[in-house]
Amino acid sequence: MFQYLLAVCLISSALGNEAQSGRIVGGRQAGRGQFPFQGSLRNLKNSHFCGAAIIGDRWLLTAAHCTIGNLPYQLRVVVGSVDRTAGGVSYNLAQIIEHPDFNELTLDNDLALLKTVYPIEMSFFVQPVVLSGNVIPAGIIATASGWGQTFVGSGLATMLQFMEVRTLNNYECKLRHGLQNREKVHTTSLCTFSRSGQGTCMGDSGSPLVANSELVGIVSWGVPCAAGKPDVYTSVPAHRAWIKYTTGI
């Protein structure tokens, strides 16, 4: 956990005082089986620190800043439960593959693939999500889910939370951010905003953003937490070719 907190501090410093990676505030509690692709990334102490999305029978997608510096044996994923503290099935990891062009300072290409040792057993409560291959325009309603903090300084959510947000184009996204963070919105980023008081928070990094039942983004960074600034995701359509080439799915 110390290693993870240190990594968060380093990334936060790199992004400037107002930006913080990791970070649902103002959401609602998810029902069992509502997000069967949602995974919880845990450390050796079984502590959740990031989310993940099931994309194949041995593959999950998360944020690279969640995994950087970790070896597969140090992490595992739990799937199949909306309760962070109970239930679900745990899978050890055989491989972690960060995007080759991931930049720790700017969080460009902030994606990592997780390969499980054994195939994930699918059920009504455990299912992969389809990778979107379409460019996501502004004004689309999407849904984010995660076990992150429900307000700054709170503990992690016990039950999976979700919220509906609206996508923004990158130009407007940059304008809504301060000068320090505008350069952290990349051509391969996807931004969302709903209202002040609603957004992602610490512990939501790596969690999925879906639209029309397809995975369109992975939580990367934002201004903590729900402070009236857009949240920034790594665009899945922009990286779909790399994901499919690397995994073979």
Rank of each mutant, 00 (worst) to 15 (best):
T116D: 04
L114Y: 02
S81V: 06
L111M: 10
I24V: 15
V126Q: 08
E104Y: 14
I55P: 00
G69Y: 11
Q127W: 05
K45P: 01
P119D: 15
G51R: 03
N46L: 15
I54G: 00
N109D: 14
I54M: 10
S123I: 09
V78K: 09
I96Q: 14
F35C: 05
D57Y: 02
N103M: 02
R76C: 11
I120G: 01
G56P: 00
L75R: 11
T85P: 00
F102S: 08
G133Y: 08
Y91K: 06
D110R: 12
Q29N: 07
N70M: 03
V135T: 14
A138M: 09
P72V: 10
P36I: 12
N46C: 08
Y118A: 14
K45Y: 14
G69L: 09
N92L: 12
N46K: 15
G16F: 04
E18N: 10
Y73M: 08
R58E: 12
G22M: 02
S40I: 07
S123V: 10
A63Q: 05
G16R: 03
R23E: 02
G16D: 11
A64L: 01
H65R: 08
Q20I: 00
A86R: 15
S21R: 12
Q74A: 08
P100G: 11
I120Q: 00
G88R: 07
N134A: 14
T67P: 06
Q29I: 14
A94F: 07
V135A: 15
N17C: 10
L60N: 00
F49W: 06
I24E: 03
A112C: 12
V82N: 13
L61T: 01
S132R: 14
G39P: 05
E104C: 03
I24T: 10
V82W: 02
S90M: 13
L111I: 13
Y118P: 00
L111N: 04
T106E: 13
W59V: 03
R32W: 08
Q34S: 07
A142W: 01
I140N: 03
L71C: 09
E18A: 09
V77N: 06
L71I: 11
G87Y: 04
G80L: 02
L41H: 06
G133A: 07
R84L: 15
A30R: 09
Q38A: 11
R76I: 00
F35L: 06
